[in-house]
Design a protein around this nucleic acid. Structure first.
Lengths: 340, 340
DNA sequence: CTGAAAGCGCTTACAG
DNA sequence: CTGAAAGCGCTTACAG
């Protein structure tokens, strides 16, 4: 059925319709006015010959591919998966397609993508660095349009949407204190892949909230989690319980950790929030569906994605309303549910 | 910082290194042997000038983009989101990037993507039809490499990975019967978007299992769900409870429905599996994490994705081991957990 | 409103 | 192993 014949070109269509490829191009792109009769003849030839535009050739000529790239650490992590899919959805709305790249939090890979060495077939990049930190800010300059999603403001001339991570940690912890917790543990900070991850900032906020309330802090209350996943949270909660450290509140670096920890706490017969109150960060879909439903500091990935796509497209298209690189804080808000 | 200068080309690199663009191409592609001295000179020039390959130009010349497209009904549905992301992950492993398209189960959009009219910048397509059915099989022929993920075998000359949907419905229902259920309800079948969706086939299997066991069937036991989502399952379960129809087993068309229904059943004070046993289909990530954990008929999206990518790449590359279009059944297996 | 021609930046037979 | 040149299939100033 699929005989290997030479693909139909605009010249072929033009020949069949009695015009040149230029007119075919004008008809299909709609860039230039064309008489109705010519348009009809061209469209008829398109159908007869089964013409399909060679998008690569157009891309070479126009310098546009119609593609955006979104690069996240790993899709295995619910938050990044939801974020990447939200970007796909928002971009589609504006007529752009998206390719998803995983950096695996690998420093070399992040540098390659940002620097454009691992040149991707796309017109712009939405990038969430994970292994790169403030030290690397000079590298964060590239000639490709880029929007950074950052865990802290970077001193880079690039559009960035920045989480208020310390404030998020403080707000979550303060909420636990407000709910009566006196010994608040935390699951989340990790050494790898870098010193500038969300966990470190959220830890600072956690410590600040406890100090402000005159409550105890200490290394025995803080458990590392290598992977910010459900499994990572479950394992960390097991460790925390095994350590024997008493605690009546638990702040988890994100919802995936919190949901895993919640599962373990209840499996050990603890009442949540009676024995331990639990709070996470992100408001992933599952947060509202757990039993009890998870309290969290919500980050609206849909609006992050929408802002990122809008900013990126404005850069790419040279939109006059685009006033140059800017840094915006990503809003967050507390959502109280059953676990606190 | 980002001054708009003419981008560096291979000719520029060649000029700086004292060779022509042909040699630069040979060095960067590795297609032809090059003397070490020449290679070193070229690489030095690449670094000095900050050369970045124009991938679009290469694509026009070679006829390859290095991109695959995966088109699913909607990312809002967990199963399709997990499937699309699994394709991204598996393709990355083989050195391909992926763009994700949503059809929104729209017939016109499905036809456009399949027919190649909405020509996408990619070398091949992994496609899950939702609105198209057996009636449309003639349309399922396109000149682009394609792998279909289907709810029923299509009479199309294309690679297809097909779910055994009727058998899945039968196995799930038979499991409930084995566990002692005598009045088994089902949530799932829907009229829209087409008559050939998974729900219809799974309903047949459900009915067959009940008849084989000599157990009652009937319209009052079957609740439609417009959307196969958590919310759809919750709403359907509310309807079922409100109808007053007694039931001690519940087969849901997929896990998302089942998890939503489970939530509602427990909110109404019902014991699962004591009062009602529940089973779903897919084995999405959340299935293992609910309380009680959800029994299900597991479909391994990772292996589906891996097979689809492998088949598609074999087609694209004209792999001699590729023996032409074939139909493969996607394996499934029962996973018993806490809800049955 | 349309034709003839140039050119986007690569890769690849054709020579040497 | 390398140079000079053609060509992939479009879009777009240049003429008319």
């Amino acid at each position: 059925m699929t005989t290997q014949r030479r693909p139909v070109t605009m010249a072929d269509v033009g020949a069949a319709a009695g015009v040149t490829s230029r007119t075919v191009s004008n008809v299909l792109s709609g860039n230039k006015p064309v008489t109705p009769a010519t348009r009809a003849a061209v469209m008829a030839a398109v159908r007869t010959l089964g013409y399909q535009m060679n998008v690569t050739a157009r891309g070479l000529r126009t310098g546009r591919t119609g593609l955006l790239t979104v690069a996240v650490p790993a899709l295995r992590m619910d938050y990044f998966a939801e974020l990447a899919l939200a970007v796909v959805d928002e971009a589609e709305r504006l007529g752009w397609a998206v390719t998803i790249q995983q950096t695996q939090s690998d420093r070399e890979r992040e540098l390659a993508i940002l620097g454009g060495h691992d040149r991707l077939l796309s017109d712009g990049l939405i990038f969430q660095p994970h292994a790169l930190g403030p030290v690397d800010r000079d590298l964060l300059v590239s000639d490709q349009p880029v929007v950074l999603l950052a865990d802290h403001p970077l001193d880079a001339r690039a559009d960035q949407l920045v989480l208020s991570n310390e404030e998020i940690g403080r707000a979550a912890t303060a909420h636990l204190v407000d709910r009566g917790c006196r010994r608040v543990a935390m699951i989340g900070p990790n050494q790898d892949p870098g010193p500038s991850t969300a966990g470190t900032y959220r830890l600072h906020g956690y410590a600040r909230a406890l100090q402000a309330a005159g409550l105890p802090t200490g290394p025995e209350l803080v458990v590392e989690a290598d992977r910010w996943t459900w499994e990572g949270g479950a394992a960390a909660a097991e460790d925390l319980l095994a350590s024997g450290t008493p605690f009546d509140g638990l702040f988890c670096g994100n919802d995936s950790l919190a949901l895993g920890a919640l599962h373990v706490l209840r499996s050990h017969g603890l009442d949540v929030p009676g024995d331990v109150a639990v709070i996470g960060v992100d408001d992933v879909k599952d947060a509202a569906r757990s039993r009890p439903a998870l309290s969290t500091v919500a980050i609206d990935t849909r609006s992050v994605a929408a802002d990122a796509v809008r900013l990126l497209v404005a850069q790419i298209e040279g939109d006059p309303s685009y006033g140059g690189p800017q840094t915006r804080l990503i809003p967050h808000h507390l959502v109280q549910r059953g676990t606190t």
